[in-house]
């Protein structure tokens, strides 16, 4: 498999207070593929994901050392522009968090905060990304009702549309289907598969079958350490490390 690197992590260490959540992680995330970060809960998957858009810096008493290069730029450098870096990445969290406003305003929120005020353009953007998130037909008649009234599955797709509306290059998903019913999960998974042609997708998941269905590239973390990483096929069919074998067989969970 021919891989171009999009995000390059070098010697990343993260501490919460005195507890080390990530230990010396170095890894290259391929461009325009789906990368799945797998591992048992509490092993640093979400921490790694949140390092990519520096949301990790919003946590109290967190210490980060090491480098993360996105498009060749070290995002942990002092003068790095956090808001511009975050704009490059859409985030889907475990539970959908619609903003306290209408469906329309949720999708238009990103473009608006980045200075877009043209009503016609905003309407076009909202339509485009609701279509892309497969929501337009369901919602086009009630764009101005509150987003909190939607079902959880619809909310998660709305969050996807909202993330896409700022035209990111990367989509980060933190167990994005864990709060959803099977049908909504399938919806989201289908979206990811469609999106990987244009975006680099990174998802955290503890569902091995989901990783198998989606991933081109797999990263296995255990207790803050990077155990193994490689193309999905190799990891699932021929893991090199004993720990990975056990996890995939379901011995560790």
């Amino acid at each position: 498999m021919e891989l171009k690197t999009h995000i390059s992590v070098q010697n990343l260490n993260v501490f919460y207070g005195n507890e080390q959540a990530l230990k010396n992680i170095s890894i290259d995330i391929p461009d325009k593929k789906i990368t799945a970060i797998i591992g048992p809960s509490g092993c640093g998957k979400t921490t790694l994901l949140k390092s990519f858009n520096r949301l990790i810096n919003t946590i109290d008493e967190v210490k980060v050392s090491g480098k993360v290069f996105v498009d060749g730029e070290n995002i942990f450098e002092k003068k790095a522009d956090v808001n511009r870096i975050r704009k490059k990445m859409g985030l889907l969290s475990q539970k959908p968090y619609p903003l306290p406003m209408s469906i329309f305003d949720n999708v238009a929120y990103g473009p608006r905060i980045h200075g877009m005020n043209d009503k016609k353009k905003l309407s076009a953007i909202v339509e485009k990304y609701l279509i892309e998130a497969n929501l337009w037909d369901e919602l086009k008649d009630r764009l101005h009702s509150p987003a909190s009234k939607l079902s959880v599955g619809q909310q998660q797709r709305l969050c996807l549309a909202r993330g896409l509306a700022v035209e990111p290059e990367i989509i980060l998903g933190d167990e994005p289907t864990s709060a959803l019913d099977p049908r909504s999960s399938k919806h989201i998974e289908e979206r990811f598969l469609a999106l990987k042609n244009d975006y680099t997708v990174i998802i955290v998941t503890h569902i091995l079958r989901q990783a198998k269905r989606l991933a081109d590239y797999v990263v296995f973390l255990y207790l803050g350490e990077l155990i193994e990483h490689g193309p999905a096929k190799e990891i699932f069919e021929n893991p090199q490390m004993e720990m990975t074998k056990e996890y995939i067989k379901g011995v560790i969970s």
Partner: peptide
């Protein structure tokens, strides 16, 4: 999660406070 949703879109802290 809601604050992070706004920040993740590239909103500044103040924008997040004001609008969310």
């Amino acid at each position: 999660g809601m604050k992070e949703a706004s920040l993740a879109l590239g909103a500044t802290k103040w924008q997040t406070v004001k609008y969310v």
